[in-house]
């Protein structure tokens, strides 16, 4: 029991606690490519701290408006507990991959409901875009994870982490990993797919009416996505050697996650934003070619 709690706390510290730091590092990377100094690495923490004391403006009395940020971060925390970092997730006894996917969608649902509650037309546009992004990205992610699941004959993360599928390279897993990587960019809300938030077009879309602590929670949840999805990518699709000691596995995973996030960051910096119809067409192609290919390979046993 104590061990389980310890594991949960550890994974939360890494995936949630360090998430703003990851964002800070990405901003620094962005600044380097922009030829500028850039903010301090801990700036996301400072932003969140600042937002906590800012006035909380509410354009509506709706109860949904108040609940949405906490629900979003809450669901993200549960997702973090279900996320493998080099080893089985801490909360593996509570849910499997499908539960993971659904709790991740629940966080997005909280964002969208919170947006719709504000009544702002831009929030509606943003919420609608957020949903459409989910619709185009989630299938890719699901297919990629299904490939792993079919190969490992289990839909639980601990079964998956224990199976040789995640530690030995295979063609289908590589293809699935590429698909997941392509989905990652949008899943993390990075350019060219930060369409839902698009500050120049619809002024942060779902968050347009947000200020203060509610916004802080949403921001943190968005930062946490960085860690969670890259952790899944690295743990499941990158065949890392098992070092025997869970902590070492975790550190190795974190290091590779850093590389993945840096890649995501570079793509983010050298691209303009796509339109929603363009990105949907893009992911439709990814689904049809890459994911289905991986699925086919997995089923024939490669």
């Amino acid at each position: 029991m104590a061990r389980a709690i310890l594991e949960i706390v550890l994974s939360l510290v890494i995936l949630i606690g360090l998430a703003p730091l990851a964002e800070g590092l990405l901003r620094k990377l962005k600044a380097i490519i922009h030829s500028r100094q850039g903010p301090p690495i801990i700036q996301p923490y400072l932003d969140i701290a600042k937002l906590l004391v800012k006035e909380d403006l509410a354009p509506t009395e709706s109860w949904m408006w108040r609940v949405a940020p906490a629900l979003c971060l809450g669901a993200t925390i549960v997702v973090a507990m279900l996320t493998p970092i080099g080893g089985p997730p801490a909360f593996a006894f509570g849910g499997d991959i499908i539960v993971f996917i659904y709790f991740a969608s629940l966080a997005a649902v909280a964002i969208i409901l919170g947006a719709f509650a504000s009544g702002n037309p831009y929030a509606y546009v943003g919420g609608s875009r957020e949903m459409m992004m989910m619709l185009s990205v989630e299938p890719v992610m699901t297919i990629a994870l299904a490939v792993a699941a079919i190969k490992a004959q289990t839909l639980t993360f601990d079964g998956l982490m224990a199976s040789p599928v995640t530690s030995t390279p295979s063609i289908s897993m590589v293809v699935a990993g590429v698909a997941f990587l392509l989905a990652l960019q949008a899943q993390l809300g990075k350019l060219p797919f930060d369409i839902a938030e698009a500050d120049q077009e619809i002024m942060e879309g779902p968050f347009i009416e947000r200020s203060g602590p509610g916004f802080a929670l949403f921001r943190w949840a968005m930062h946490a996505r960085l860690m969670i999805f890259s952790a899944v990518l690295v743990s499941v699709f990158v065949p890392l050697p098992n070092l025997g000691i869970p902590v070492l596995n975790m550190v190795l995973t974190l290091a590779v996650m850093g590389v993945v996030l840096a890649l995501v960051g570079v793509v983010d910096v050298v691209n303009p934003r796509l339109r929603i119809d363009q990105s949907m067409a893009y992911y439709a192609r990814v689904v049809v070619f890459v994911s289905v290919l991986a699925l086919a390979l997995a089923i024939v046993g490669h």
Partner: peptide, 15 residues
Amino acid sequence: FSRLGAAKRRSVAVW
């Protein structure tokens, strides 16, 4: 956590 800063709440019109 969001109440740590004891931020004031205020109703506003949609912007």
